[in-house]
């Protein structure tokens, strides 16, 4: 097993592309090292991206923020600007693991690890975030929901590295929120989760919305029918019931050690409702 820690992104891409065996990018390592220690993977090359300086930057860009792939969740949690603009995304990042885990873990790693239960995924999908990918063929930018294809399988091609995440600008009177159900209070994996982002018009009615669910299907889901239920409404009980029903209808979960099909389907709606109300409050609307 070889370990490389290049200082330049180009070099990193070159090393990855040249590797004939199994290669893995190392960001925080909070997934990767666990997989190594449990002997689930035996890579030939470990490519650490933390020495690449540009990957540690959080930069304002076109009214939003670009977040380097090596930015830890803890660093993100202390960034006043991102917190103010996308509180739901930051709350997802700072739910991951524990204080210690957040000191290492990255949002990009969370997405690339491609767990259907990854906490950052629904929040990023709801936020309409995009992902910048560097590779041997150049740079491409894809929506966050395009990264996870199936449990443990992401959309990156050979030699590709996620370079940064982009959180877009948003209109005034916008808010987002992320909620997950874990049986404990931390150090756990979502049994089901929901992210909601919405904007209100001057009258307090929902003018735009995105809803995403985690751990209820082989990949994090964007639920357009649920978002449609919110748009044009002021999130009254009846609307929230439609939202919950749309979420339940989108669920395609499994029975496993973390929860049952029945439970996940039901609680997805409960969390989506609650997240929608929090997002509405954050947007300055009626609670």
């Amino acid at each position: 097993m070889r370990y490389e820690a290049p200082r330049k992104l180009k070099r990193a891409v070159a090393l990855l592309s040249a590797e004939s065996g199994v290669a893995r990018v190392l960001a925080g390592g909070t997934d990767l090292l666990v997989q190594l220690r449990s002997e689930r993977i035996e890579p030939d090359l470990i490519l650490d991206i933390k020495r690449i300086e540009s990957m540690h930057a959080i930069a304002a860009e076109r009214g939003g923020y670009r977040i380097g792939a090596a930015v830890s969740c803890a660093a993100l949690g202390e960034h006043a600007g991102v917190k103010q603009l996308w509180p739901g995304v930051v709350e997802a990042a700072t739910l991951i693991g524990s204080t210690q885990v957040q000191g290492r873990a990255t949002m990009a790693g969370n997405l690339c690890n491609a767990s259907p239960a990854a906490d950052a995924a629904p929040a990023l999908i709801a936020a309409g975030a995009t992902v910048a990918i560097a590779g041997p063929g150049g740079r491409r930018e894809v929506p966050a929901e395009a990264i996870c294809l199936a449990p443990g399988r992401n959309a990156l091609e050979k030699g590709e590295i996620v370079e940064s995440l982009y959180l877009p600008a948003r209109p005034e009177r916008s808010g987002d929120a992320y909620l997950r159900l874990i049986p404990r209070s931390e150090m756990d994996i979502a049994v089901v989760s929901a992210g909601v982002s919405l904007s209100l018009d001057a009258a307090g009615r929902c003018s735009a919305a995105r809803v995403a669910l985690g751990a209820v299907a082989p990949r994090p889901l964007r639920v357009e029918a649920a978002a449609a239920a919110l748009i044009g409404s002021d999130l009254d009980e009846a609307v929230l019931a439609v939202l919950a029903a749309a979420c339940a209808a989108a669920c395609d979960p499994i029975d496993d050690k973390r929860g049952t099909v029945e439970y996940r389907t039901e609680v997805a709606g409960v969390l989506a409702k609650r997240a929608a109300v929090i997002a509405q409050t954050r947007a300055g609307g009626a609670a």
Partner: peptide, 16 residues
Amino acid sequence: LQNPGFLDYRVPVASD
């Protein structure tokens, strides 16, 4: 056994 680890064998953590 489906949960031979502390991730899914859930002992309480301090914050619980």
